[in-house]
Design a protein around this nucleic acid. Structure first.
Lengths: 330, 330
DNA sequence: TTGTATGCGTTATCAG
DNA sequence: CTGATAACGCATACAA
């Protein structure tokens, strides 16, 4: 590995001058700049990131914290971020928290030693009070999650509206008994709070009251979906439609329904969330709420890079549109 | 961030001694060791990886190069690797090559500056001659790919057998006209060569000759699958079964078949590859060749860590079992 | 406009 | 058994 010293020697100049051209400083004569550039080329020189980090420099590295890469939603999100970052000359490091707050904190602390210049968080496992101090070491951007304090840039989707529209679609189809399945809790605050409100609002407007028996919390996987469907089918008074928190859950429900010989949407209508490729492959094709995951990833990358390049840039919130894709499961 | 110097001061010892206890060197009295440990604890000290890297030290970081994270096969593979590595105290960095040889090389060169201690490659985009030199900087483990030279550890699955068994299953079901769909080329060497051989062997044993019109190369996506099915359906003399290179392709074919009102498996039987969660969600459920991706990822992580911890360890090849999961699409 | 000297946090070498 | 010192590669304050 060629070092800055090698370049200096070959070009007959000092380390300092070489460093200056690397970092595009002013006060370098065009003539010497060329000399340096030529030497760099010749030696295939590339600055050692470890040395830069040790100096506390930025290194065009951004970290992305995700709960789980096997969740397609996050895989696509990461892909979009990576794509955009790469085009702008940034590398991304992917960290799986597995929803473990301790891991999340340990990833955040990578900022301290400049292992990463900034971090995009796509979920939040800790109290904001625990996360906030890390801002001193580098920018944090929230993507797909948000806090009420406007201390950091946020890129999110209008989950309230998405859910509202999804449930409304069900109502328009004539359903009155609509179950609700969420990855979070059915609470005023915390995860999926906006979705919860969207569900409630839509029902309320139609003069329907929430039936707590039909609210399923903390459901994530295909297996969860299967269980939920089984549960529903055992109920005496059962819903005719269900709004789910992800296409996976919806897929699990559909698989179980097929197993049990229950017809969709005739006996039970199902709507998903995300619009993953999977959705269009199911039979019947799944009606779902599309999240513009590519746009979101792209925006998140753009915003954090902007923060990195210009510390004074304003802190904004971005809300991306969301839409219901009507197929054949409702 | 506390540094080694802070620890030294607090414990009343020198940097050197502190460094010695960090690295478990011999020749440190139990008494001072305790002093140091206590100070480290108190200051929440953690060695700066950048400094270590600069010194050319190992840093318990392993890199994984994958083509594309949105491909569920690789998402699950990465997840398994990450899980295993984490348990053993290693972090993993994920790099997407997007099948770009240049990117692959740039990731490999991270070894030079010890950004990563070792690399697991899950695909190979360059000639081995280009990759081989990087071995001088750290171990490389091949996972899901292999070269004929035994210079590096390899963890692979018996793709030959998997394909052979899959095609044989089709033959046992009475099919004689069996199409073949691969992500690589239908060549003696290169990507998917073992699968090609498995297909040929199974046909040969049954006295069937390969029909080149029924061989589809370089197919990867759901969309590709749809196209292939359309093509097949337009043929005058068309196959009654098709062996596909991935569950995605199979899913695409099935979706298109449903669209066209073609019954599976009656009119055309389809077998997938991978056994992704998706496979059991399709209608009919997809018969597929299961790849033990979790085991493979785990083994890959174990092997590279072994290499890292003991340079003299033997270079082995591991071949994992593979099986046909018979469901309802064949 | 250019160069010298210093320090970032570690570990290795060598002397005590 | 312990400690001072140099070196890893780079960027900056300061000098020239």
């Amino acid at each position: 590995m060629a070092t800055i010293m090698d370049v200096a020697k070959l070009s007959g100049l000092s380390k300092t001058t070489v460093s200056r051209v690397i970092n595009n400083h002013a006060y370098v004569s065009e003539e010497k700049r060329m000399l340096v550039l030529k030497a760099m080329e010749e030696l295939d020189y590339y600055p050692n990131p470890a040395a830069r980090r040790l100096r506390g420099q930025l290194t065009t590295t951004i970290g992305v914290i995700i709960p789980k890469i096997t969740n397609p939603f996050f895989a696509y999100l990461v892909d979009a971020i990576e794509q955009t970052a790469y085009e702008k000359g940034y590398q991304v490091m992917i960290f799986q928290s597995n929803e473990d707050p301790v891991k999340e904190l340990s990833f955040l602390s990578l900022l301290k030693t400049k292992q990463v210049d900034g971090i995009i968080m796509t979920a939040i496992e800790n109290e904001w009070e625990k996360i906030e101090p890390f801002l001193a070491y580098g920018p944090i951007v929230l993507c797909n999650e948000y806090m009420n304090e406007p201390a950091v840039p946020v890129i999110k989707m209008d989950q309230f509206k998405g859910t509202y529209m999804g449930v409304k679609h069900l109502i328009e189809r004539g359903h009155q008994k609509i179950a609700y399945c969420t990855g979070g809790l059915f609470a005023e605050e915390g995860k999926d709070r906006d979705r919860n409100r969207g569900y409630q609002k839509a029902l309320e407007e139609a003069g329907i009251t929430v039936n707590p028996n039909w609210v399923f919390v903390d459901r994530h996987t295909i297996e969860d979906g299967k269980q939920v469907l089984k549960k529903i089918m055992k109920m005496e008074n059962r819903p005719t439609a269900v709004f789910t928190g992800s296409d996976e859950i919806a897929a699990g429900m559909m698989a179980e329904a097929t197993e049990l010989g229950i017809r969709i949407p005739e006996e039970i209508a199902i709507i998903g969330f995300d619009d993953q490729p999977l959705a269009a492959l199911l039979t019947p094709k799944l009606t779902t709420v599309r999240q513009p995951v590519d746009q979101m990833g792209q925006k998140a990358a753009e915003v954090i890079i902007e923060q990195l390049q210009d510390e004074t840039v304003a802190i904004c919130q971005y809300e991306l549109p969301i839409e219901v894709i009507i197929r054949h499961s409702t």
